[in-house]
Simulated assay, not measured.
Amino acid sequence: PPRAAPAPAPLRLLLSAISSVHSAGVIRLVLLFVTLLGMWFIMKTYFHHTWKAVSLRSWLGERLPRHKCGNQKSCPQNYFAFKIISGAANVVGPSICFEDLVLMSSVKNNIGRGLNIALVNGELGNITKLQTFLQGIKRGTLVLTASYDDAATKMNDKVRAYFTELGSSHVGELGFRDNWVFLGAKGLMNKSPFEKHIKNDQETNKYEGWPELLEMEGCAPRKMD
């Protein structure tokens, strides 16, 4: 039989190009399928429990429940929610929140440099005669304390002893421009678990001349023994 005449050169080039594009497209589809399959396997294997935790409410932007003082969790009955934040350098003042009530803050304009102390019986403020004030605290009173700028320079041994009686473990080592947050109680028989202290150290300070601020939140029992 007679041979078919060869296709003109331009037509051959066009057919070759179409064949190459088709092959590349198939390869890309195969690679895409393999990639999607691998991603599905990884998510199914490693994120199975995580995906279970993502609910439709989260996707719809429903707000999570708010806890007292903006804490991460709520407190059980017979416990008080609190949050104490120390000052940041000598620029940002401290804040003390108790049972969702902000007792002290820069906004309330009742904080000052040094020690800022709030009592749950309503007495609060920046204490001038600190020694007399601490001595007069009634038994069973919760004491919330936050440092700002420098709280240690004017603190004598008697003041430190009073805070030790309130349950502090770190007041004895509190130094110049250290940051300190503390919750204790008058008549406490044991050391308070609610205390944080960070030293003023030029090598580790977050701010020039001051350490980073401290933040402490938790649930304090209504009766601390």
Rank of each mutant, 00 (worst) to 15 (best):
A89F: 05
I84K: 08
N78R: 14
C75L: 04
N109F: 03
S86K: 09
M104L: 14
D100M: 01
E99C: 10
D100W: 05
V102L: 03
G87I: 04
G87P: 05
G112H: 06
Y79G: 00
M104N: 10
K108V: 00
N116E: 07
K68P: 04
F98E: 10
N71R: 14
G112P: 06
V102I: 09
I85S: 12
L64V: 02
I111S: 00
N90L: 11
G114A: 07
F80R: 13
L101Q: 15
F82G: 04
S106N: 15
S95D: 10
H67V: 02
C75A: 04
D100L: 02
V102T: 12
G114E: 05
P76M: 06
N109I: 02
F80Q: 11
V107W: 01
S86Q: 08
Q72P: 05
V107F: 02
I111H: 00
K68W: 09
P76Y: 01
I85T: 15
V92A: 08
F98T: 03
I111V: 12
S105K: 08
I84T: 13
N71L: 12
K83F: 00
L115E: 06
G114K: 09
V102K: 07
P76A: 06
A89Q: 06
A81E: 14
A89V: 01
G114H: 05
N78P: 00
I96T: 11
S105R: 12
A81K: 07
R66K: 11
R66V: 12
F80I: 10
V92T: 14
Q77T: 14
N78H: 11
D100E: 08
